[in-house]
Amino acid sequence: MDYSSSRKQLHIAMFPWLAYGHIAPYLQVAKFLAQKNHHLYYVSTPKNISRLPQLPPTLCSNITFIPLSLPHVDGLPPGVESTSELPIHKVPYLKKSFDKLETQLTEFLERSPQIKLIIHDFAPHWLPPMANQLRINLVCFSIFNASTNAFFGPPSEILGGSRKSPEDFTVVPTWMDYPNNIAFKLHETVSHKECEDIVSDFERYATVLLNCKILTLRTCYEFEPEALRVLSKIHQKPIVPLGLLPPPLTSVDDKGDENWEALKKWLDSKQEKSVFYVALGSEVSLSQESMHELAFGIEKSGLPFIWVVRKPPLVEEQFAQDMIPPEFEERVSKQGM
C-alpha cells in the first residue's frame, strides 16, 4: 500500500458487525479519518445507521452512509438489525443474514472504484476473496483490546490449535510470555456457544486476520505494551493501536425533561459518592432468576442506587414486568430509583 503522500485523500469503506458496541467505535474512527480529509463510506443497515449520533457539520461532506438492506432468513424476527434486539440464542440468525450482505456490498464496491481500503470487523469471513478480486486492501479493526487479541493467539491456533475444549480457554496460553492472569471463566466459554453460527466466530476472525494488511486495536502502548509486543510477534504484520476510544462527552439539555429534573433533584439530596449505579448495557439480558437475585442484593445493601432496567428483547410487556420481583419498587421507593 503506497500511502506515502500525506496530502492524498483516501476513499475508505467502514464495515462493522451489527452490534452497537462495534458500530459506535467504527463511527469514531470514521470521524477521526474524516478530520484528516479522507472520505469515508460507512456501510451498515438502515436501522443501525439511524441510531448513530448526528455528524458535526464540518464532517458531513467527508462521511457518506451506505445503507444495505438486511436479507431475510428463517428464524430472524422481522425488523431486527442488531444484537441488542435479540436474545443470545437467536444471534446466529443475525450472522446468517449478515453473511447475505455479501452481494449488496460487492455491488456497491464495484460501483465505487475509488475505494481502495476497507476497515472491517471480525465477522465477514467472505470479504477477503471479494476484496482481492477488486484489488482493495483490508484493515481489520478489533474493538477488543490487545490482551484479548493476544489471548486468542495466531490464526493457526484460532482455527484449531492446542485448545480443543472449553476448559482449555480457562488457562493463560504459553505464547503470552509475561506475567498476567488473562483467561476465560468456564461459564463464559460455554455460554458463548449459544451465539455461534455454522461458521464459528473463531473461524471468522482467523480468516480476516490472515488476509488483512494491518490489524488495528482499541488500545494504546501506555496501557498494554506487553500485549502489543506479543501481537506483533505472533501476527508478523503491523499492529496499530488507535487509543481507547471512550464515548464522546455530550452536553445534556435538561430543560423541560421532567424525568431528568426529578433524578437530578434526588441525586442532589444524597451525599457525595454515596449512590451506586447499576446498568448492564444494551447487549446483556439476564434471566428472571438472575434479575430477582440482583434486585434482592440491591435491596439488602441498603444503599441509595440508580438501576437502569432494559426490557429483554422479544419479550411481551406483561412478561417483561415480571423481571422485577413483586412489590420491589414499593419497598425501595425511598432507597433508590
Rank of each mutant, 00 (worst) to 15 (best):
M130S: 10
F152G: 01
T103S: 13
S142F: 11
K96S: 10
F152A: 06
Y93R: 06
P77F: 01
F122E: 00
G79F: 04
S142P: 13
L70W: 04
I136M: 11
E81S: 07
I115F: 02
F144E: 10
H72Y: 12
I115C: 04
F151W: 05
F98R: 00
D99K: 10
T83L: 06
S142D: 09
I119T: 04
A131D: 07
A150G: 03
Y93G: 02
S97R: 08
L101Y: 15
E102M: 14
A123R: 05
L76K: 00
A131G: 11
M130D: 06
L76F: 00
I119K: 01
Y93H: 15
A150V: 03
V139S: 02
P128C: 02
E110L: 15
S84V: 07
F141I: 07
E102R: 15
K96H: 10
G75V: 04
F141R: 02
N137W: 10
V73K: 10
G75S: 03
P124H: 02
R111I: 10
E110P: 07
F151M: 07
S84F: 03
L127A: 03
R111H: 14
L94P: 01
E85H: 03
R111S: 15
F152E: 03
Q114G: 03
H72Q: 14
S97C: 11
E110A: 13
S97T: 07
G79L: 09
L101S: 13
L70D: 05
L109S: 05
K100S: 12
N149F: 08
K96C: 07
K100R: 13
T103K: 15
I118Q: 00
D99I: 06
I119S: 00
L109N: 01
T83G: 04
C140G: 04
L117D: 05
T83E: 08
N137S: 12
I115W: 02
F141C: 05
T103N: 12
T83K: 04
P71L: 03
K116W: 10
P92H: 05
F108N: 04
P78H: 05
I119Y: 03
S84N: 14
E102P: 04
P77G: 06
K116F: 11
L76D: 01
P113I: 07
L70C: 07
S69T: 13
I143Q: 03
N149W: 06
D74E: 13
L101R: 14
P87C: 06
A150N: 02
K116P: 08
S84P: 11
I118L: 05
I88Q: 12
F144K: 06
P128Y: 05
L94G: 00
E107W: 09
V91N: 07
E85R: 01
P124A: 04
L105I: 15
I88H: 07
H89P: 08
R135W: 08
H89G: 06
K90W: 01
I136D: 11
F98K: 00
